[in-house]
Simulated scan of single mutants.
Amino acid sequence: MTLIELMIGLVVGLIVISGAIYTFLVSFKSSRDVVYSARLNQELAAITSIISDDIRRAGHWVQVGDLSSPYSDVGDDFNLVSSTCALYNYDTDADSIVSAAEYSGVRFSDSAIWVKTSGTSMTSCSAGAWERLSDENFMSVDAMTLTDSSLCTVNASSAVCPASVGTDEVASVREINITITASVVNDSDWTKTVQETVKIRNNFYAD
């Protein structure tokens, strides 16, 4: 075998190897994109489901004996503090008393979604203990917006939901629109936005 033949053989071998490597890289990127897409969809669906199901329970309580409702005013059971934070509570153990352990909340902060695990404040989104809900190693939450689309009536007339009941007769059918946008940490080109409308099961009524 001459030197020229050896060089030609090396060139042909390099071309074949380059083609194989290129095919592998294309296949790897395609597989990675499928994984990114599927996991991002799954993560956002799970987060939205957890938030929605929890908010729907706001204001739930079971009457025990002669105990009256622990909710005497608008905002006692659910308070949309801002477009990025909501605080709420419900009677999980059916004793007709809302204890400190039955307060919860959700907020958007530091490119993540957080849930409240302790603390009784219904006005401060920094008080109490909060736990990260979104996976910081995989996804970055770019935005979360909570919008109030509740329908209220005061003395049988449509009106903006009041801050307090006062002496008026108030009925409120409460709905919250949730919009979340997130992207993959390792590839920001993969971005997805999900929307969900949550109707709180317990309509608020007071007179």
Score class of each variant (00 low, 15 high):
A45L: 05
L151S: 14
L6Y: 11
I176H: 00
N137V: 13
G75C: 07
R39H: 12
C125V: 04
I176L: 07
Y71N: 00
V198L: 08
S157E: 09
I180L: 07
L3T: 12
Y103I: 10
S134Q: 09
D168E: 13
V170A: 07
D110Y: 04
S109E: 09
T117Y: 02
G13S: 07
A206C: 10
A182C: 09
A112T: 02
R32G: 10
D95M: 04
T181W: 06
T145G: 09
Y88P: 07
A94Y: 00
Y103E: 10
Q195S: 13
A127P: 01
R39C: 03
N203R: 15
S83C: 06
R32C: 08
A112I: 02
G128V: 03
V173C: 03
Y36M: 11
M139R: 14
D73N: 13
S126D: 13
T23Q: 12
F24H: 12
T117K: 03
F78P: 00
S172L: 05
D33Q: 13
A163T: 11
S140P: 08
L14W: 03
V16C: 08
I178Q: 01
V160K: 06
T84C: 07
D33N: 15
V81K: 06
A171V: 06
A129C: 05
V64C: 01
L40R: 01
L40N: 01
S96Q: 07
S158M: 07
V12N: 08
I50S: 09
A38H: 14
T23K: 11
L44F: 06
I4H: 12
L151D: 14
V62Y: 01
S96R: 01
T84A: 09
S18A: 10
P70Y: 00
K29D: 15
D73M: 05
Y71P: 00
N203H: 14
L6F: 13
L133A: 07
I176M: 04
I55G: 03
T84K: 10
T197N: 12
S109G: 08
T153F: 11
S183N: 12
L67P: 00
E5W: 09
I200N: 05
R39P: 02
S134H: 08
S111W: 01
N41K: 10
S164M: 12
V198N: 05
D53L: 10
T2C: 10
N177C: 04
V194K: 07
R107W: 05
D207S: 12
C161Q: 02
A100Y: 09
Y205G: 09
D148H: 11
N89T: 12
V74T: 01
L146K: 07
V11S: 13
I47R: 01
E169D: 15
D142K: 15
S72E: 13
I180S: 02
I180V: 13
S134R: 06
S104R: 10
I4W: 10
G105S: 13
A129S: 13
K116L: 02
R56P: 04
I8D: 06
T23P: 01
V185Y: 07
S37M: 12
Y22C: 06
S37T: 15
V11E: 04
T147A: 15
G75L: 03
D93T: 03
A20K: 03
K116H: 01
S109A: 11
F204H: 04
I200P: 03
M122N: 11
S82M: 11
V34I: 15
L87R: 05
S30I: 04
V98N: 03
Q42L: 12
N79P: 03
I21W: 07
N41M: 09
I50H: 05
L87A: 08
